[in-house]
């Protein structure tokens, strides 16, 4: 199936084993097996409805699964509030539609987690927030509200908001697909910088193939709730093995 056979070892920050999920009778995830090394950057693609979002949302328990096991940073995902909280503290998530809190200023959006979850003093949380706003190049918007920002700016704020929690892992679910073309680049640039400078573990659902080629260590193709193929970006795009991937690539490239 895959060229890079992953063995579970101490470096694996995410270990997904035989994970299955159903929506009623609909089998949405079928026997998912995936190991992610610390610092690894993975791009996930596949046709609409193939279960990409569902899979990465299982990692921070925005979705529950019925069968299989999932271990994140050494903590097993079970029906226990303590485990769920421990995992969520280590996993940041960026959504397609940004999901900024519209009733809070940009700065408050960024300090909310550090203050209420990490119990940091306000000064410290604000200093961290400003640091990350500089990183995503919008420190001057700190006191505005999300509704006053452009889509690209909002998504950069959303990335900064996750980074303020200093997570081990970042999940991105189609972070650029709600953006106008001219704003896609500014968000991708931030993500590329993040990948190259921080060495952050990243799982990113996206169809931005240039992004995949630039930053990914591994690209995963999902179809019909299964991981159909995975490979290094070069091999993935140059020598797709399965017909399904060939068809998919011919449609999007």
């Amino acid at each position: 199936m895959s060229v890079i056979e992953q063995q579970a070892n101490n470096d694996d920050i995410i270990v997904i084993k035989d994970l299955n999920k159903w929506y009623g009778n609909f089998h949405v995830l079928k026997d998912i097996n995936l190991n992610v090394r610390k610092g690894e950057r993975i791009v996930i693609c596949g046709p609409s409805g193939s279960g990409k979002s569902t899979m990465i949302r299982c990692i921070n328990r925005l979705e529950e699964f019925q069968k299989g096991s999932l271990v994140v940073n050494g903590v097993e995902m079970i029906d226990d509030v303590k485990n769920i909280e421990a995992i969520r503290k280590e996993v940041g998530m960026v959504f397609q539609h940004f999901n900024l809190f519209p009733h809070l200023t940009i700065l408050e959006n960024l300090t909310l987690g550090p203050i209420w979850v990490q119990k940091k003093p306000k000064d410290e949380a604000e200093a961290t927030a400003m640091k990350y706003l500089e990183r995503v190049k919008i420190p001057d918007q700190a006191l505005k509200f999300p509704g006053q920002l452009s889509g690209g700016q909002q998504q950069r704020v959303a990335i900064a908001r996750s980074l303020c929690m200093a997570p081990e892992i970042m999940l991105f679910d189609e972070p650029t697909s709600a953006l106008d073309p001219e704003m896609i680049k500014e968000v991708l640039d931030v993500m590329i910088e993040l990948a190259e400078e921080e060495g952050m573990t990243m799982l990113c659902v996206t169809h931005e193939m240039n992004f995949a080629k630039t930053v990914a260590h591994r690209v995963i193709f999902m179809d019909g709730g299964e991981i159909v193929e995975e490979n290094t970006p070069n091999e993935f795009f140059e020598n797709p093995e399965t017909d399904r991937l060939q068809l998919f690539l011919s449609q999007i490239l």
């Binding site: 921070n60 909280e85 969520r88 959504f95 999901n99 809190f101 909310l112 987690g113 209420w116 979850v117």
Partner: peptide, 25 residues
């Protein structure tokens, strides 16, 4: 619902999600 999801993924407890995010909006 995205508001709840964003708040949860920051690690906020359910009662805080309610009092800091849902109720004010």
């Amino acid at each position: 619902h995205g508001q709840t999801e964003a708040a949860r993924s920051l690690g906020l407890k359910e009662n805080r999600v309610m009092s800091l995010i849902i109720v004010p909006q």
